[in-house]
């Protein structure tokens, strides 16, 4: 007579299988897939907070030093620090419904013409689905995943790769469009949120390096950007 499997032994075997499968987990996607997933995720969010910092040699024509604000791509509302000679000036920028609005040192909001926008900071391109930072993520080549790192308390994978200078030039028009630049993205292992992006290279001068760092937080926190009242 064939002896049946005892219930306790069956339960133990079942548990062992569950534990071993769950401990193996799903394999981590490759770097290119992670970049695509994260790009999609960031463009699909209902909003996030961002900080952008430019360091290194920025030349005399690049006035932007840093920016921070909230975005619901491509719309955004940011405070931007501009270098004006030896001093820093803060302006407020809104990009909503296809137009750019500026609030400067004094006075209320004014709507800028495309020509005026080109003078200092084209906020339209920053998170544009076709040419912005998240689009550049998809176009990153030679991407490789590094060891897990904590960024702002979140477990992330740093993905390093190359972005063509032409692509970067679309992001900020004062960036030189020759060669390619180093890009690193810190993507959360669970959920694909992008927490940090760093673009490095001779961005504003053929011989001198500069770095642009983006830090993101408040992922999927709803952000609504509307045109401000003028005047």
């Amino acid at each position: 007579m064939h002896a049946g499997v005892s219930p306790s032994r069956g339960l133990a075997a079942g548990l062992a299988i569950i534990i071993s499968v769950s401990s193996c987990g799903a394999p981590t996607p490759d770097a290119a897939t992670l970049l695509k997933q994260s790009s999609q995720r960031m463009l699909g969010l209902s909003g996030f907070h961002f900080q952008m910092q430019i360091s290194g040699f920025t030349g005399t024509d690049e006035p932007v030093q840093s920016a921070q604000g909230d975005a619901h791509p491509p719309a955004l509302h940011a405070r931007v620090n501009l270098k004006e000679g030896a001093i820093l000036l803060e302006v407020e920028v809104i990009f909503a419904t296809g137009d750019i609005y500026l609030k400067s040192f004094t006075g209320g909001w004014q709507k800028l013409t495309p020509d005026e926008v080109a003078q200092f900071f084209d906020a339209r391109t920053l998170f544009d689905p076709q040419v912005g930072l998240f689009a550049a993520m998809r176009d990153t080549t030679a991407a490789a995943r590094g060891n897990a790192e904590k960024v702002n308390g979140h477990e992330t994978y740093p993905i390093a790769g190359q972005v063509s200078a032409g692509r970067m030039h679309q992001l900020l028009t004062l960036i030189r469009d020759q060669g390619s630049y180093q890009a690193t993205y810190w993507i959360e292992s669970q959920g694909s949120d992008l927490w940090r992006a760093r673009l490095t290279g001779n961005l504003f001068d053929a011989a001198k390096p500069a770095t642009i760092t983006f830090d993101f937080s408040n992922h999927d926190h709803p952000v609504s950007v509307t045109p401000p009242p003028l005047g």
Binding site: S104, T106, G107, G108, Q110, L112, E116, Q119, G231
Partner: peptide, 27 residues
């Protein structure tokens, strides 16, 4: 006091230099 003092922007504005000088004086 400066709530309606909007700075001129360079762009294609031919009178920018004059407008900017007046703006700086007002500030």
């Amino acid at each position: 006091v400066t709530a309606h003092l909007i700075p001129p922007l360079p762009g294609l504005n031919p009178n920018f230099a004059t407008q900017y000088a007046i703006y700086v004086l007002k500030v």
